[in-house]
Each structure stands twice: as C-alpha cells, then as structure tokens.
C-alpha cells in the first residue's frame, strides 16, 4: 500500500515536472501536454455536470451485457467441446479460423449489421470476449486430472456425480481465470468500439477530446478507464479467493 502510494506520487511528480516544465520553457505546444491541474479541473467539471458518471454507466452497461452473453455461450459451448470429442473436433477448426482475425477488424461489420445503437456495441463485446473465454473454459475442463476421475469412479461415482463433484470443482479455478481475462478484454475493446460511431461512453468521451482538441479530457478518460480496470480486477480477484479456498 505504501509502495503504491509512493509509486503514485512518483508518477504524479514526473508528470507535473514534465507538463509544468514544458509550459515554462515551451519545449512543445503546452496545449498538447496537459498538466495535472488541467486534468483535475476537467474531471471536476465533468463530475459536476454529470457527464462523467453518465458516460461511465453507459460503457459499463455495454460491457456487462456483452460479457454476460459471451460468458453463458462460452461456458455452454466450452464445456460441451471439452466433454465430447466429435463436437470438439468440429468447433475447433471453425474457431481457429475466425480467432486469428483481430476482433477490432470486425467492429465496422457490427456497425453495418447492427446499426449505431447499443446492439452493435453489446454484440461486439460479446463476440470479442467469447473466444478467449471459450478456449479457457474448454482447456480447464480438459485439464482435469484423470487420476481424480479414476479415484472418484472407484469410490462409486456415477457419470453425473463425476461432472458435478469432480469435474466442476477441479476445473473451476481455470474457468474463473478465463472469465476474469474475458472481462479485462471487454474493458480493453469497449474503448475502441466507442471510438467508432458512438454518441456516449468513455471511449466517445476520449474521442471527443481529440475532435475538439481537448487533451485533458483524453487523459481524464484514460485515467478513469485505468481506475475502473484496477477496481474491477481487484474485485474479481477477491471474489476468486472467496470462491476458491486455497
């Protein structure tokens, strides 16, 4: 905690030295190197008139909806693929065919297909986060130690018992990690999705900062996203420790 505080102070000090220093000696146009003060002022203003909270909520709702859809699909299909070899062999090549395509390359497709409204953003998040979560879920189920299954079977476990009492608990840590990574990815790409054809959200706020040449607003957006990312990550890690007694 102390270390984090010191690191924070160090970053702030360097940033202040560079930005205020640049203002003093005019190394480059001061407008493009926002100072902590300017970013603070923009943030306070955005908090006062509610734009920050409104855009934050918009982004979060999109992320949550898209993530939830993808998580359900990844759990169902990933589990199926792991438990059935034929399904695995049929899903694998299709997924391996689509997966190397950077998801953001499909973003304009989603805008064309689903329009500029909420649907396109939510669908895009769902599409993007599905693949890594699917792969993670399938891999964690496949990795379950055969010896555990054998041990349970010799103790009289039925097929349903094996799934519920051995496979699920043994695969759970891996599944939870996959879901956490998926959520991280959703926060990563929502920005890009909101750069393109959105009228609200943190990504849009950042893009607005560029369009109206307001660098402090860009920095504010980036910092808020970073803060959001670390809070969500910390919460998910705490949840993970709760669910998985170590």
């Amino acid at each position: 905690m102390i270390v984090r505080g010191l690191a924070f102070a160090l970053i702030l000090a360097v940033w202040a030295a560079v930005s205020y220093g640049n203002r003093a000696v005019e190394f480059t146009n001061p407008a493009i190197v926002p100072t902590p003060g300017e970013v603070g002022a923009v943030t306070v203003a955005a908090l006062r008139d509610g734009t920050l909270v409104r855009n934050l909520v918009t982004s979060l709702v999109r992320v949550l909806e898209g993530f939830a859809i993808a998580a359900v699909a990844a759990l169902a299909l990933g589990g199926l693929a792991a438990l059935s070899a034929p399904i695995r062999f049929m899903l694998e090549p299709v997924i391996e065919f689509v997966r190397p395509i950077p998801p953001l390359a499909f973003l304009p497709m989603f805008l064309v297909w689903f329009g500029l409204g909420e649907t396109s953003k939510v669908a895009f998040i769902a599409y993007t986060t599905f693949f890594p979560m699917f792969v993670g879920v399938a891999a964690s189920v496949l990795r379950v130690d055969v010896m555990l299954l054998r041990a349970a079977a010799t103790l009289g476990a039925t097929h349903a018992d094996l799934l519920r009492r051995v496979v699920l608990p043994a695969a759970l840590p891996g599944i939870i990690v996959a879901l956490r990574l998926g959520f991280g990815l959703a926060l990563f790409v929502i920005v890009g999705a909101e750069f393109m054809g959105a009228d609200a959200g943190l990504g849009n706020l950042i893009m607005e900062g560029r369009t109206f040449f307001n660098p402090p607003q860009i920095v504010m957006g980036a910092l808020v996203l970073g803060l959001l990312g670390s809070i969500v990550n910390a919460l998910l890690l705490r949840l993970e420790r709760r669910v998985l007694p170590s």
């Binding site: 990563f188 890009g192 996203l225």
Partner: peptide, 18 residues
Amino acid sequence: EPVVELLRPIPPLAMLPL
C-alpha cells in the same frame, strides 16, 4: 514495478487519441 503496475490497467486504446 509499482509504477508499471499503476499504469498498466489503462487500456492502451484509450491512449491512442493522445
């Protein structure tokens, strides 16, 4: 390390306009 850990959660895409 702590400095990097603090900066890392900022999604890189958010810095693109900058």
